[in-house]
Design a protein around this nucleic acid. Structure first.
Length: 483
DNA sequence: ATAGGGTTAG
């Protein structure tokens, strides 16, 4: 077109940018962006929304935001594009605050797309107070009747641990599409409700055609329920009866099932001979299983692969370090720490949060910034006494740093999930279920402690960590102590 | 004639 001497206009750019977006072609997108600037179309909302989408699909949220900021006369689709850019790139908090800004500056006339995006952002951080607020908004403005909004709400309530609410909304869908079934099945699966997930899958087969995502849900239900035989049955049936080629996520479920069961060599064999390229999730699952079953050699191999795939992820080094520590191989711990220091890698900062009276309260390990900090620590101390009476012995094996024993104790005692739980206990009526979210894995010792707390205080405590949900009740956890 | 949204992840 350019060779023919024709200049692109405001209609040309969106078409060609959409092509970039579906190919995740960042360099081409940037070239076209320059062309947009040269031809003076950068303040066009259609061109801008397309550019934001290209940058979002390529993971460049900052570039997307620059495009957004240059456009001063915005329409609802432009806002939605920017919200989606945040939401899809792991910045759900930014999406929610941009949504507030949108409400403030534009008078907030959202569309179905706005709400779906914001609800899914709330779901991703299980930010229930915001999610409920959006749900209320949907209801008051007649959006709740829309199936797409309702499906997003099903996902949000499921991820926030309200499976019954999710199910009630799911049953009220006018037309259950595959996406809705998938959200509900995955919801049961991630909470370890394997039988509900599988029952729903049987029901689904009568009404809709399962897709590859349905099977991720089904296999992950088997995984969380440790249903090895059923898992393989579904895996084989997926390929044979449904003609679905297994993706890396399907393999991850199977490798995780084998690994958790201690069949580490079989898990390794499956990684080597599977038809798709193993990603960091696959090796991460194997590394985690090596920790559960104390296998140093295979753990080292898994870390080698992970260093190739995601060298900057500190969590991987920490897990191998834990494996070394369990085995008493302190030279391995020291070697890893040196390696991390040389590369400037730091453990991510742990953070837990809990919603109380429609407000989220966040805690870092050992922090004293909460206004009720003194009462929180007093409550932890009180519980500590009761736990010792009940037979609790602290396990500081997972403390990464090589510090003395007392210091290790205090580090573990101030873990963020404990602060969040203690705050929940002192600020809600007895018997109230607590729901805590954490950005990392729950450590072994906290897991033991929370089991004790659930029994001593007679509370149900739901902790959503980075991998899965833990439902603590009466001294036990739904994960069966494997996570 | 052009742009945005729901389901999967160690």
């Amino acid at each position: 077109m350019l060779d023919h001497g024709l200049g692109p206009d405001n209609f040309t750019f969106p078409f060609v940018l959409k092509a970039c977006s579906s190919l995740s072609a960042l360099q081409e997108g940037k070239d076209i962006h320059e062309h947009v600037i040269r031809t003076g179309w950068e303040s066009d909302v259609f061109v801008g929304a397309s550019l934001i989408d290209v940058y979002a699909k390529c993971g460049c949220v900052g570039d997307a935001r620059q495009v957004f900021d240059k456009i001063l006369v915005r329409d609802v689709v432009l806002w939605n594009s920017m919200l989606a850019a945040y939401s899809q790139n792991g910045h759900p908090d930014e999406a929610l605050s941009l949504c507030r800004e949108m409400a403030w500056t534009t008078g907030f006339r959202p569309t179905v797309a706005t709400l779906v995006t914001v609800i899914s952002a709330s779901a991703d951080i299980a930010a229930l107070p915001q999610g409920r607020e959006v749900h209320g908004f949907c209801w008051r403005h007649g959006f709740e009747t829309q199936d797409k909004v309702k499906t997003a709400l099903v996902d949000m309530y499921a991820k926030s641990g309200f499976l019954k609410v999710a199910r009630r909304l799911f049953e009220r869908l006018k037309d259950k599409r595959v996406v809705s079934w998938n959200a509900m099945i995955a919801g049961y699966a991630m909470h370890g409700h394997a039988s509900e997930a599988l029952a729903l899958f049987e029901e689904m087969k009568k009404e809709a055609l399962p897709d590859h995502i349905t099977f991720v849900g089904v296999l992950s239900a088997c995984r969380h329920g440790r249903l090895m035989d059923e898992g393989w049955k579904f895996f084989e049936s997926m390929v044979r009866d449904h003609l679905i080629e297994p993706t890396v996520q399907h393999y991850t479920c199977m490798i995780d099932l084998l690994g958790h069961a201690g069949r580490l060599d079989e898990a390794y064999d499956l990684i080597v001979r599977m038809s798709v390229r193993p990603d960091s999730g696959v090796w991460g699952s194997l590394l985690n299983s090596c920790k559960l079953h104390k296998n140093v050699e295979l753990g080292e191999q898994a870390l080698e692969r992970l260093i190739e795939l995601e060298p900057d992820d500190a969590g991987n080094y920490v897990i191998l370090s834990n494996i070394y520590a369990q085995a008493g191989k302190w030279e391995g711990v020291a070697k890893l720490r040196k390696f991390m220091q040389e590369r400037g890698l730091k453990k991510s900062i742990a953070c837990s949060w809990i919603g109380v009276k429609n407000k989220d309260h966040a805690f870092l390990a050992g922090d004293v910034f909460h206004p009720q900090s003194d009462e929180i620590y007093a409550e932890l101390k009180r519980l500590g006494g009761l736990m010792t009476e009940a037979g609790y012995v602290p396990d500081t094996g997972q403390v990464f740093h090589d510090v003395d024993k007392d210091e290790k104790m205090s580090m573990v005692h101030g873990h963020s999930e404990r602060l969040a739980i203690a705050f929940g206990l002192i600020s809600t009526p007895s018997g109230t279920r607590l729901r805590v979210t954490k950005n990392l894995r729950v450590c072994d010792d906290c897991h033991v402690v929370i089991k004790f707390i659930s029994k001593i205080t007679e509370r149900e405590i739901i902790v959503r960590d980075v991998n899965r949900y833990h439902h603590f009740k009466d001294g036990t956890c739904s994960c069966g102590d494997y996570w």
